[in-house]
Computed example of a mutant assay.
Amino acid sequence: MRPSRSVIAAAVAAVAMGTFTPAALAAGQAGNDDQNFVVTVHQGNLAEIAAGTDTRMNAQDTCVKDVGRTLVKDHTKLDTDLRALAQKLDISLPDKPTEAQQAQLKQIQGKAGTPGYDTAWLKAQADAHQATLKTIDDEIARGDSAQVVAAAKDARPVVAMHLDMVRGGTCHVMG
């Protein structure tokens, strides 16, 4: 079986950068950009799970609570799959969202039990899902690891659906 052009291109690039080892190529390890993608998306999943869980106690609008439940369910599934891939590719994952993600949720929680919470939560989710879609699209277009690109392609419709649910900072429950 002949290696694909992308495998050959990755090997050539790795040789040029001095990071090539035959064992790494055989193991199908992800490059630095692919690893960064996995870590970034994992932390995004953790942030979405925390934000979705938070709506149970702090949102006033039923639609926001419904979207929150959907985020928890979908991002838990996405992250379970991503963790398995990270383990397979020997990518170390952090155990919590970024400091900025944690700070944003705390800021939103400061409006708990008010309509301002729902508005701030929806806007934050719209921004986060828009950024995640860009990250996913970048990985699909430029990723070196076929496995990581496949994970990005699998996640894309879920994240796009979530964006549709919060687009423009307005809540839309999908059927």
Rank of each mutant, 00 (worst) to 15 (best):
45 N>P: 09
27 A>H: 09
26 A>D: 10
40 T>M: 10
20 F>R: 03
43 Q>I: 01
24 A>G: 11
48 E>P: 02
13 A>D: 12
55 T>F: 00
24 A>F: 01
17 M>Y: 10
34 D>Y: 04
43 Q>F: 05
64 V>T: 13
13 A>C: 02
22 P>T: 04
35 Q>R: 15
39 V>H: 03
68 G>D: 07
15 V>E: 11
27 A>S: 12
20 F>D: 02
20 F>G: 06
32 N>K: 15
48 E>D: 05
56 R>V: 11
57 M>L: 14
40 T>L: 09
59 A>W: 02
41 V>D: 11
65 K>R: 12
58 N>H: 10
20 F>L: 11
12 V>A: 12
22 P>R: 05
53 T>Q: 06
41 V>I: 12
46 L>G: 09
68 G>L: 03
36 N>W: 09
49 I>A: 04
42 H>V: 00
31 G>A: 14
23 A>N: 06
69 R>Q: 14
35 Q>T: 13
14 A>T: 05
13 A>G: 08
54 D>V: 00
51 A>V: 00
14 A>L: 09
56 R>I: 06
29 Q>E: 13
63 C>N: 14
39 V>E: 00
24 A>T: 06
17 M>L: 13
31 G>S: 13
57 M>W: 13
51 A>F: 03
44 G>N: 11
50 A>M: 07
27 A>T: 02
15 V>W: 08
43 Q>Y: 04
51 A>N: 05
59 A>Y: 03
51 A>K: 00
43 Q>E: 06
26 A>P: 03
12 V>R: 09
24 A>N: 10
61 D>M: 08
28 G>C: 05
16 A>Q: 07
52 G>Q: 02
16 A>D: 01
36 N>G: 13
55 T>K: 00
52 G>W: 01
14 A>H: 03
56 R>A: 14
17 M>S: 14
64 V>S: 08
53 T>K: 02
36 N>R: 14
30 A>L: 09
57 M>T: 14
49 I>Y: 03
65 K>Q: 13
30 A>M: 08
69 R>M: 14
36 N>V: 09
47 A>T: 05
41 V>F: 15
42 H>I: 01
25 L>P: 00
62 T>D: 15
12 V>K: 06
59 A>V: 04
39 V>W: 01
65 K>P: 08
45 N>E: 10
54 D>N: 05
66 D>N: 15
54 D>W: 01
16 A>N: 01
66 D>C: 11
52 G>E: 04
12 V>N: 02
47 A>G: 11
47 A>E: 01
57 M>I: 09
39 V>D: 00
22 P>M: 01
57 M>Y: 11
32 N>Y: 14
25 L>H: 07
36 N>H: 12
27 A>P: 07
46 L>I: 05
27 A>W: 02
17 M>P: 04
40 T>Q: 11
